[in-house]
């Protein structure tokens, strides 16, 4: 039981790192970016290539995955995404679906359609028992790493000027520009950070979530659940939503395996009906 809870928390934290970038683009910038998972996939494949083809250490792969996805994100933001911030949602949906399709087919072309496997460093594999609870070393590693990242992110958003500048830029771009804030630079940085975190999540997730060309579509729904249920007023909302989702999904798959992903979709729809503005937001506006 506690093992399931533990696994669920690890899974949830991973989901949070994967999805928090989307919370910003979707939530704050109001951009429906269905291609978010593609950045995570990029991070995952960077890891796979570095480890399996060049034999590099897993620990080097993590920052590399972050950087690669962040650069990719920045490049796409500058060339394409930027033009569509003000576009109708239909355009954003079409555009990002197009990106996903290209990513899926492209990866399939270069890497093949099979599941990718990596072998973790020995000190991260296996389980040990603590007070009778079986604890996976890798999952513990993920929890610690993701917790640190979350704290760092929270501090960045609340304590630094970047955070307040971002809020200003999102609230009213013109006013922010008037205050001397470089809005487009803030947006690139934010987008790159979100993509980078997704890439890092993708790298961490190779072992836990699996990795194949369909990754962006398979996990899209999870990311969107985290964002819509968590709301966007802070990062605490998506964080709690991710934990909840992680635990529920792991427990559901353990106790009711025949229902599969059924529960997740049903719960999501129920939430969207009951709390269309997210679980952890106070009722704001209409």
């Amino acid at each position: 039981m506690l093992t399931i809870l533990f696994d669920g928390i690890a899974y949830g934290m991973l989901l949070f790192v994967l999805a928090c970038g989307l919370a910003v683009t979707l939530g704050l910038m109001n951009f429906v970016n269905l291609a978010h998972g593609a950045f995570a996939m990029a991070g995952g494949y960077v890891t796979v290539v570095m480890m399996n083809r060049y034999g590099l250490s897993f620990y080097w792969c993590l920052p590399a995955a972050f950087l690669a996805a962040a650069l990719l994100g920045a490049a796409l933001e500058v060339t394409l995404y930027r033009r569509l911030y003000a576009a109708p949602h239909l355009d954003q949906v079409l555009f990002s679906i197009g990106l996903v399709f290209m990513a899926v087919a492209g990866i399939d072309y270069f890497m093949g359609g099979q599941q990718q496997l990596i072998s973790l460093p020995p000190e991260l594999s296996g389980r040990f028992s603590l007070f009778g609870v079986g604890i996976g070393r890798y999952r513990l590693f993920i929890i610690i790493l993701c917790a640190l990242l979350t704290i760092a992110l929270q501090l960045t958003l609340t304590r630094t000027r970047i955070g307040s500048q971002l809020r200003a830029a999102v609230d009213d771009g013109r006013v922010a520009r008037g205050l001397g804030i470089n809005v487009s630079r803030i947006f690139v940085l934010t987008f790159a950070l979100g993509s980078g975190l997704a890439g890092l999540g993708g790298a961490l997730g190779v072992e836990l979530l699996g990795l194949d060309p369909n990754f962006p579509l398979k996990y899209l729904i999870y990311f969107m659940i985290v964002v819509t249920i968590g709301g966007t007023s802070s990062i605490t909302g998506p964080f709690l939503a991710a934990l909840l989702l992680g635990v529920a999904d792991v427990a559901g798959k353990y106790y009711l395996p025949s229902l599969g992903a059924f529960i997740i979709y049903a719960v999501m729809i129920a939430f969207l009906i009951l709390r269309p503005h997210g679980l952890f937001t106070r009722e704001g506006g209409k």
């Binding site: 429906v32 659940i225 599969g260 059924f262 979709y265 049903a266 999501m268 729809i269 969207l272 269309p276």
Partner: peptide, 25 residues
């Protein structure tokens, strides 16, 4: 009926995934 473009995207998406999963099971 309720909500924004985003919640509509999510609910329609969710309903179709629910059915797909159901057909599979």
């Amino acid at each position: 009926l309720r909500g924004s473009d985003l919640t509509r995207l999510m609910t329609t998406f969710g309903v179709s995934m629910l059915l797909a999963e159901g057909a599979n099971q």
